[in-house]
């Protein structure tokens, strides 16, 4: 449960960074070295996200306390 939470949280954080990188790279005045750094970071994060999307399996937690209260 903890692990999955961190997985989806990490996924969302990565996705946000990817979006940010995408915007940063639009700036044509960006110096080339910086652009390449961002490119590499964006590619790595995207591939990580793709991998976790393919590899993940839904985690199910079942609560105990709400059943049959009659």
């Amino acid at each position: 449960m903890e692990k999955v939470n961190s997985d989806i949280t990490a996924f969302k954080i990565k996705l946000e960074r990817i979006e940010e990188i995408s915007e940063l790279l639009e700036d044509q005045d960006l110096d080339l070295e910086q652009a390449i750094k961002l490119y590499e970071e964006g590619m790595i994060l995207s591939q990580e996200c793709l991998k976790s999307l393919q590899a993940a399996e839904v985690k199910i937690t079942e609560l105990k306390n709400s059943f049959n209260t009659l």
């Binding site: 989806i8 937690t61 609560l63 059943f67």
Partner: peptide, 17 residues
């Protein structure tokens, strides 16, 4: 979306109570 976590609150969905 297999990254999602499902939390089931098991319930009786039919009959008394």
């Amino acid at each position: 979306f297999p990254l999602v976590e499902l939390i089931l609150a098991p319930a009786k969905v039919q009959g008394e109570g």
